[in-house]
Computed example of a mutant assay.
Amino acid sequence: MSNTKEIERAELHKTIWRIANDLRGSVDGWDFKSYVLGMLFYRFLSENLTNYLNTQECRAGNEDFNYALLSDEEAEYGR
């Protein structure tokens, strides 16, 4: 059973790697990695800001608050 899972995992890894190479195209691997890591870091910051603001609003008594649902104008005040 574990051998089957290892084979499936290896196939999945190959498929993901092939898709990443196709998406990358002629861009240098390091440049692509820098772009992807930068986007992941930005997402990390965005999600943590959202969680922080939602938690603080909940503590302040506004339990229905959701930063992700605010308009851009309203969200700018939180930033």
Rank of each mutant, 00 (worst) to 15 (best):
M1F: 14
S2T: 12
S2L: 14
N3Y: 11
N3G: 12
T4A: 14
E6Q: 13
I7H: 08
I7D: 06
E8H: 05
R9F: 07
R9H: 06
A10G: 01
E11G: 02
L12W: 07
L12Q: 14
L12D: 11
L12E: 12
H13D: 12
K14V: 05
K14A: 09
K14E: 13
T15M: 08
T15A: 11
I16D: 04
I16M: 11
A20W: 04
D22Q: 14
R24I: 03
G25H: 01
G25K: 03
G25M: 03
S26C: 06
V27R: 08
D28K: 06
D28M: 04
G29P: 12
G29Q: 15
G29D: 14
W30S: 11
W30A: 14
W30D: 13
D31T: 06
F32A: 10
S34H: 08
S34V: 10
V36P: 03
L37V: 06
G38V: 03
F41E: 15
F41V: 10
R43T: 13
F44Y: 15
E47G: 05
L49A: 05
N51G: 04
Y52Q: 07
Y52N: 07
Y52S: 08
Y52V: 05
L53P: 00
N54F: 01
T55Q: 10
E57F: 05
E57N: 07
E57M: 08
E57G: 00
C58Q: 15
R59H: 11
R59V: 09
A60D: 10
G61D: 01
G61E: 00
G61K: 01
E63W: 06
E63C: 08
E63G: 01
D64E: 13
D64Q: 09
D64Y: 03
F65A: 00
N66L: 04
N66D: 12
Y67L: 07
Y67N: 04
Y67R: 12
Y67D: 02
L70F: 00
L70Q: 03
S71C: 02
S71I: 02
D72C: 08
D72E: 09
D72P: 02
E73D: 11
E73W: 04
E74H: 02
G78H: 14
R79Q: 07
R79K: 12
